[in-house]
Design a protein around this nucleic acid. Structure first.
Lengths: 139, 139
DNA sequence: TATTGTTATACTCTATAACTATA
DNA sequence: TATAGTTATAGAGTATAACAATA
C-alpha cells in the first residue's frame, strides 16, 4: 500500500508532535501534571512573579484557559499568586511547587534527550534551528 | 522575561505542529475538509480500494473514529465503499471525490511549500529526514 | 478605552468500552 | 479467536462571548 504522506514534512511534523506529546504526558503523569501545566510551572520557575497574562502570551494559552489552570495549580499548592496591581496577579512557586519544579526539570531533560536521540547523530545539530524556524517570528 | 522553553526541541515541535495544523485547516476550509478527512482522501486517492481498517492503521486513526469520518465523506458523495468480503469495505473516490482530490493535492502542495520556506535554505534538505526520524519506526 | 481575570459554553480530536457480524 | 465495523460516550485541549473590575 502506497503512503502518499511519506514525503510531506507537514505530516511528519504532526505525527512526531503527537507521539512526543503522548510520551511527555506519560512521563509527567507520576508528577500529576499535564504538559500545559508543566509549561506554566517551567515559566514561573524561571520567572518568579511573572504575570498570568504574560505567561499566557508566552505559551499561547488564552486568558479564559489560564484561569482554571492556575486555579487548579494553586489549589494543589504548587503556585501562589501575589497582587501586582488591582487587576493583575504575579505567580511564584510554593515550597511544594519548588520540589515539583526540580522533578519536572529532570523529567523534561529526559524527554528531550530521548527525542533528540531518535535523530541521526550528524543531523541533531540542525534540529532545534529547523523546529524553531517552523514556528517562531510570527507566533 | 526569560523563556525556559526556548531551547527545548520538543516544545518547538509542539508549537510548530499547532501552527501548521491551523494553517492547513484554514487552507482546507474552502474545500470543506478537515485535515483528518484530507489525509483519508489522499490515501484513498493513492490506493483505490484500500480497506478502511488499513487506512486507519496507516494514519493512526482508531476504528471507532474512522466509522463516522468515512460515513460523513460518503454522505457528501466524496467516497464510495465496496464490500471486500463479508465484514471489510474498500474505499474509492467518486467523481466528485476525484475533483476534490485534485484540488486537495494543490492545497497540500501549497501548504508544504509554505512550511518549507520558513526553514533557512541551507537546512531545508535535512528537514524531512529529521521529522521522519522523530516518529517513524515505532509508530 | 484597553487590560486583566473569570465564568460559561461549545467544538474538535481522540480514547475506551461494548456490541454485532464475519474470517 | 481474531478481525472489521459501528455506536455511544467521555475526556482533553482549545475557542468564543459576555461580564466585572481596574489601569
Amino acid at each position: 500500500m502506497d503512503d502518499p504522506l511519506r514525503l510531506l514534512p507537514g505530516y511528519a511534523l504532526r505525527r512526531a508532535s503527537a507521539l512526543h506529546m503522548n510520551a511527555l504526558n506519560a512521563r509527567l503523569e507520576p508528577l500529576g501534571l499535564s504538559y500545559t501545566e508543566a509549561a506554566v510551572l517551567l515559566v514561573v520557575g524561571a520567572n518568579p512573579g511573572a504575570k498570568i497574562s504574560a505567561i499566557g502570551q508566552m505559551l499561547d494559552i488564552k486568558r479564559a484557559n489560564m484561569s482554571p489552570l492556575v486555579a487548579r495549580m494553586e489549589a494543589r499548592g504548587e503556585l501562589q499568586r501575589t497582587a501586582v496591581d488591582g487587576r493583575a496577579f504575579g505567580l511564584s512557586l510554593t515550597k511544594d511547587g519548588s520540589d515539583l519544579y526540580a522533578q519536572l526539570i529532570k523529567a523534561v531533560h529526559a524527554h528531550e534527550t530521548a527525542l533528540l536521540e531518535r535523530i541521526p547523530a550528524e543531523l541533531r545539530q540542525y534540529a532545534l534551528t529547523i523546529l524553531d524556524a517552523l514556528w517562531t517570528s510570527d507566533n
